[in-house]
Write a protein that binds this DNA or RNA. Structure first.
Lengths: 217, 217
DNA sequence: GTTAGTTTGAAACAAACGTTTTAAACAAAA
DNA sequence: TTTTGTTTAAAACGTTTGTTTCAAACTAAC
């Protein structure tokens, strides 16, 4: 069963985008590694931006629906705040891991995509992401907020993005960190272990006491 | 007092690199905004890579020496682990803020530089950073470790990089986050406030209980 | 005043890029 | 069979990139 040209392009594109970023990956690299013609990208996706968004959607669409069901399931059961937070982060990362199929490269792609939702460059991706997946993101954000110690909206905003940064960086460098870990400590870790370790830190940091925002003395 | 050509180039380069990244900033943009000739970059820095490393060093050299003195001062006074950790993070971020001169753009540049020390792309920068500033980085890492709850080397490794990610992401998106904060909560925050808020979360996450590394259930 | 280092101006280079085009083949559905 | 959509092949387009070159002008030190 031979894969279609579109699939072949998407498969290679997401690997290359994850490994070298969007700007540093040329269409010629993608098409040659995919064994398809150069013109096929513009034919099927219109432009490079179109390809990037297609790669994005292929990852975020299932993540989006998976996350939504996780959130609905989490809202029904009543547990402690600690358990609730653990379940929420677990739900997100488990879903991400499932879609990434245990492949660090795909998690790196995810991190790159989230990053470009905040960075100035790749403006078209930022707009696409916020417009397409902003609502689900907000849903997750509010679910987390409902189980966090009392803090006003702004304090939560900063805290949440600090935690988001923790996730994004760990995922974004998961392959490099795993390599260092193995070279330095002779411990070959798989992604699920890293994510589990990440969850505990996330929950702890979520439960950190609230302080008034003041200046760096 | 007119600035030298080298300074003019470096001043513009770090702003553009911070705003649009290394690859998406052309030498023609830099030289035209700096009001110097295109050939001046290759004359003074040899190549674009040379310019990037020069920008790096102008930021990391003072940060490196500042951090070193901070670490020496911190090692003399005996305090609680909580205070010690606070002082360490404060020392790092205060130094970064000082060198950034309160400018978010320069902090974004710092975050970009640290990021490229882990990411695959810009391989020459990774080598340059680890070779040039690896020792100071290790020094800071061990200082933090000496005030953390009992955990083995590998557990600390993962925890530390989670915290590092928190810092890098927050700095890397400080301007975007500040803009969102103002638009959403009508609160105009300056960098020192953000960093102070960050420190409290960093310390809390550092003190989070240690758990065995296991699989994501 | 001469010299050495700096800077400018302008032009050109080769390479890589995204994109477009044209013609020819191929597949499957009408 | 005809048609329609897909895919290949190859070439070219225009633009941008980092880099190099050359002569001319400027600056400072010896």
């Amino acid at each position: 069963m031979k894969k279609t040209t579109v699939e072949r392009i998407l498969d290679v594109a997401e690997v290359e985008f994850g490994a070298h970023g969007f700007v540093e990956t040329s269409l010629r690299t993608i098409t040659s590694k995919a064994g398809v013609n150069l013109a096929a990208v513009n034919y099927h996706f219109g432009s490079k931006k179109g390809l990037i968004q297609a790669v994005t959607d292929r990852f975020f669409d299932p993540l989006s629906v998976g996350l939504k069901t996780q959130l609905q399931a989490a809202s029904t059961t009543q547990v402690s705040q600690h358990e609730a937070l653990t379940k929420l982060y677990e739900g997100l990362l488990r879903e991400a891991l499932r879609i990434a199929r245990g492949n660090p490269t795909r998690l790196i792609l995810l991190a790159r995509l989230i990053n470009s939702a905040y960075s100035q460059s790749q403006g078209h991706l930022r707009k696409h992401l916020t417009h397409q997946y902003g609502p689900v993101f907000m849903l997750f954000m509010q679910a987390i907020r409902s189980h966090m110690p009392t803090m006003d909206h702004e304090q939560f905003f900063w805290r949440f993005h600090q935690l988001l940064g923790m996730m994004v960086f760990t995922l974004s460098n998961s392959d490099a960190l795993m390599a260092i870990c193995e070279a330095e400590y002779h411990q070959q870790r798989a992604l699920p272990e890293i994510l589990q370790q990440l969850i505990t830190t996330l929950v702890s940091a979520s439960e950190a006491p609230v302080v008034a925002i003041e200046n760096l003395a």
